[in-house]
Computed example of a mutant assay.
Amino acid sequence: MRVAFLSWRDTTHPDGGGSEVFVESVGRELAARGHQVTLLCARHPGSARREERDGVLLRRVGGRLTVYLWGLAWLVRHRRDVDVVVDVVNGLPFASPLVRRHGVVALVHHVHAEQWRIIYPGLAGRIGWFVESRLVPLLYRRRPFLTVSDSSARDLAAIGIAPAAITVVRNGLSAAPPEVVPAEAATPRLVVLSRLVPHKQIEHAFAVLRRLEDDLLGLHLDVVGEGWWHAELVAAAAAEGVTDRVTFHGHVSDARRDELVGRAWLMVMPSVKEGWCLAITESGAQGTPSVAYASAGGVTESIHDGRTGRLVGDLDEMVEAVRELLHDETRRRAMGAAARDLAASLTWEACAIRAERVLREAGAAGDQSP
């Protein structure tokens, strides 16, 4: 097949995250299986307009919002060169059904009701949520949907997507867990592995740190990742009085990420919403269990509560869960081992094979442009 992914960003974008890792990982696996794969995404400072990576051709056009118009224009020009389009609906759709009747698959990691309210309070957020919750179901009716968790599938059904049209393809893992579990740091350490954006609620990790400082001497927090909310988080750490116990590492290599996560005793994920949360899987691969909010959706599947980590209801419960696990080495290590086993069972190859079936079916009908 000739497959085109339309995505707002790629993994080299400063705001790139788990959604972009999913797209490129599945694209890489599809290319390895003999398909011709193109990823169209926005440009960013220092990026090349055209690049080939892992068998996937990247074409970068437009900016944060104009990429959507460029994407439609590219589809019109190349309508006979593409068998199936994967339209990545990251809050806003590319609206590819406007220029293609067939051969369109929508990829949604999660719906963004909470994010619209948090990041764009007021009219802009209400418009964004209207587009996602009302126009997307109308525009993509009778098109197949891919998503990464049963939780996200239920949320899609709640906004009007037919359940029969939804296929769940869970995230994989880029590298198998190491044969030897990394050693924990000598003193208690927490880690947050995340983009630095408001809806990840990393401020809650600072509150956990402050409330446990007298209970666990030497407790430290490593924040791994970067994003446009960085300055606000630095200020939040100062406001909590934990600046000297927090290290902001920014973007790091995969090897450095694994080192930081592996030496942590626990990973804290206070995000409002996740489709799956690749960071939890990546932490589990290093034998590090996670604590997250059960209300965040997909984390209820990337964490098996009480076995590979803990799911909690609010900040108070998060503090207590972290406290208990930091004090209980036996239970913590058992959870880490189970998290590692779960991570080892997830591969991008299996994810791509499942997605490939949906793409083949969508592409088999061919395309008839309006």
Rank of each mutant, 00 (worst) to 15 (best):
314 D>W: 11
366 G>F: 07
77 R>P: 01
181 V>Y: 09
145 F>H: 15
172 G>M: 06
160 G>R: 06
102 H>N: 09
59 R>Q: 13
258 D>N: 15
277 C>R: 00
48 A>D: 10
85 V>M: 09
290 S>W: 12
320 E>C: 03
266 L>G: 11
29 E>N: 04
37 V>H: 03
81 D>A: 15
200 K>L: 04
41 C>S: 15
12 T>G: 07
143 R>W: 02
350 A>W: 05
328 D>R: 13
218 G>N: 04
238 A>G: 13
246 V>Q: 06
149 S>I: 13
138 L>S: 00
145 F>C: 08
108 V>H: 10
34 G>N: 08
93 P>D: 01
277 C>E: 08
128 G>K: 04
343 A>Q: 05
151 S>Q: 14
134 R>M: 00
24 E>T: 05
319 V>R: 07
39 L>N: 04
324 E>D: 12
65 L>E: 10
132 E>V: 01
183 A>W: 03
249 H>F: 12
188 P>K: 09
335 M>S: 03
97 P>S: 03
21 V>S: 06
79 R>W: 14
227 G>F: 05
286 Q>M: 15
315 L>I: 07
265 W>A: 13
35 H>P: 02
157 A>R: 14
224 V>S: 09
321 A>I: 02
33 R>I: 00
206 F>C: 06
41 C>H: 08
238 A>V: 08
193 L>H: 15
93 P>M: 01
150 D>K: 10
36 Q>K: 09
88 V>A: 05
141 R>A: 12
274 E>Y: 15
337 A>P: 00
118 I>A: 14
180 V>D: 06
300 T>H: 12
320 E>F: 09
117 R>P: 00
16 G>R: 00
299 V>N: 06
58 L>P: 02
10 D>N: 09
310 R>G: 02
84 V>A: 10
90 N>L: 08
237 A>M: 02
330 T>Q: 12
124 A>D: 07
83 D>C: 07
218 G>H: 10
234 V>F: 04
198 P>W: 12
147 T>G: 09
208 V>H: 11
325 L>P: 02
100 R>H: 05
319 V>N: 05
314 D>P: 07
318 M>C: 05
178 P>F: 15
56 V>S: 02
331 R>G: 13
32 A>Q: 08
46 G>S: 11
62 G>N: 08
92 L>C: 01
217 L>A: 14
354 R>V: 02
75 L>C: 05
185 A>N: 12
330 T>C: 00
82 V>G: 07
202 I>L: 11
93 P>G: 01
73 A>Y: 08
69 L>P: 00
81 D>P: 09
155 D>Y: 10
370 P>M: 07
351 C>Q: 02
132 E>P: 05
151 S>W: 14
287 G>R: 14
265 W>V: 04
261 V>F: 13
153 A>Q: 06
86 V>A: 05
132 E>K: 09
141 R>I: 02
68 Y>V: 01
228 W>Y: 15
65 L>K: 11
195 R>M: 10
20 E>H: 11
35 H>L: 09
203 E>I: 01
352 A>Q: 04
56 V>G: 01
255 A>R: 13
356 E>A: 15
193 L>E: 07
123 L>Y: 15
177 P>N: 11
173 L>A: 06
266 L>N: 13
110 H>L: 03
337 A>L: 14
149 S>A: 14
259 E>L: 12
15 D>S: 14
129 W>S: 03
238 A>M: 07
269 M>D: 04
341 D>W: 03
318 M>T: 09
125 G>F: 10
